[in-house]
Each structure stands twice: as C-alpha cells, then as structure tokens.
C-alpha cells in the first residue's frame, strides 16, 4: 500500500495510516451509533495532540512548521466563521432551527482549511491544485459509476462530467495562470448552477449547503487563487528526484 501511494509522490507514515483507519472506522460505525463519531475526531486531532505533548516524534522541523501554520490558518478561518454565525444567530431572523448544521459547518471549515494549508505548504500551489482536481475527477467517476452501472451508455455519458476536472489538472501543471482563471470561473459556474447562492437566502444552512460550498467550491477557489498568486514556480515536482544542477 505504502509503495503504491509512493508512486503518486505520497509517503504516508504509520501514524497517517492509524489516523486514517480511525477516521474510516469512525465514519463506518456512525451507522451503528453516532457516538463513534468521536473516533473521527481522534483520528484527525490525535496525532497533533500527541506531537504537542512530545509523545510522538515523527515529523521534522519543516513538517512541524507547516502543521503549525496550517493550524493557525484553521484557527483564523473557523474563528471568523464562528463570529459571523454568532452575529447571524443573534440577529433573530436567520432560518437556522438546529445547532447541528452550525457545528457541522464549523468542523468542515476547520478540517478543510487545515488540509488545504498543509498541502499548499508541503507541495506548493501547482501540485496541490492538480491533486485536488484529480481527486474531484475520481470522485465524479465513482459517483457516476455507482449511479449508472445498469447502463453502459449512461455510464459513459455520466463519466464525461469528470473530464473537465482531469483536463483542468493537466492545464494546472502547464499553464498556471490560465488554470487559475478557469478554476475560479468554474467555481462561479457551479455556485450558480447548483443554486448555492441561496446561502444568502432565508434558510442559509439547509440541505448541507454550507458544507457543499466549503468542500466543493472551496477547493476550486483556493486552488485558483493559489495558482494566480504567482507562487506556482516553487512547486514540489512530485516523486521525480531533483538532480543536482551545476
């Protein structure tokens, strides 16, 4: 498994595997009881907690710096959102009946900001954008396959939705500015197409709208902005060894 992932330039440690297993187990076991959701939290935050306590020493100084910076970014994003939500809730007319969507949105923003900031620090914008887009494409493929396995033509048609993501990933690797503009344009298109602008309406957090915006529009916008910010030249080239140059 580790060797397979190394082909894609990712070398997860034993800690990453254990944390990933805890998260997966937690998600699966929520089908039995939502009490097991705490396992997801342990998987996400446990390694960082152990590192801060000095009981886990599996990172070098660059990784620790990237993780701390990502943690600070997550703190800023989640804090800002918490204040905005508090302001919204206290105004009276907000259309939010239950606390669950609010907490869920805070967790999603916390996780998303942390992951994105870590990836950008570790890989740089170009490779982060490519990875995000390929992941999106694969998810679309899985989604369309699960939805239309009964009909081969339908499966083919549905799979075409994944093509723009793979095409954008290709463009991001070669023409960063063009890819940046296309990513932001596609984010704006999806925001309108899926009616996500209703976050400004009378029921802002209904049907998981906030989470969809963060997890679907967020990566597209963040990758686009990162590519346009002109930091694309300092990227991790992936698994290819950087040969010494004279």
């Amino acid at each position: 498994m580790a060797r397979f992932l190394a082909r894609f330039g990712w070398r997860p440690t034993r800690t990453t595997f254990v944390a990933g297993a805890l998260i997966a187990l937690g998600v699966v076991l929520t089908g039995v009881s939502w009490g097991f959701f705490f396992l997801v939290g342990l998987g996400m935050l446990g390694p960082g907690l152990l590192r801060e306590l000095g009981w886990l020493k599996d990172q070098d100084e660059f990784q620790r710096q990237a993780a701390r910076r990502a943690g600070y970014h997550a703190f800023l994003a989640t804090g800002l959102l918490a204040f905005a939500l508090m302001a919204l809730l206290r105004t009276g007319e907000h259309g939010i009946k239950e606390p669950e969507p609010v907490v869920s949105l805070l967790l999603v923003v916390l996780w998303f900001t942390w992951v994105l900031s870590s990836l950008l620090a570790y890989w740089g914008p170009r490779r982060t954008a490519r990875t995000i887009l390929v992941t999106f494409g694969i998810f679309w493929l899985i989604f369309s396959a699960a939805d239309s396995l009964h009909s081969l033509p339908m499966l083919f048609m549905q799979s075409l939705v994944a093509v723009p993501f793979f095409a954008l990933a290709y463009v991001a690797g070669r023409w960063t500015r063009i890819a940046g503009v296309l990513l932001i344009a596609s984010a704006a298109f999806f925001f309108y197409y899926f009616g996500l602008y209703e976050i400004f309406g009378s029921a802002p957090l209904a049907i998981g709208r906030g989470e969809v915006i963060v997890l679907f529009i967020g990566p597209l916008v963040a990758s686009g902005v990162a590519l346009l910010s002109g930091r694309g030249g300092n990227d991790d080239p992936g698994e290819r060894e950087q040969g010494p140059s004279q």
Partner: peptide, 13 residues
C-alpha cells in the same frame, strides 16, 4: 529530515 524538507530548502521555500 525528509526529502521534502531538503527540496523546500533548495527551492528557497
């Protein structure tokens, strides 16, 4: 250190 760290130093990141 990790290879990623060496690479990031070389690239000035």
């Amino acid at each position: 250190a990790t290879r990623q760290t060496i690479m990031s130093i070389e690239k000035g990141r």
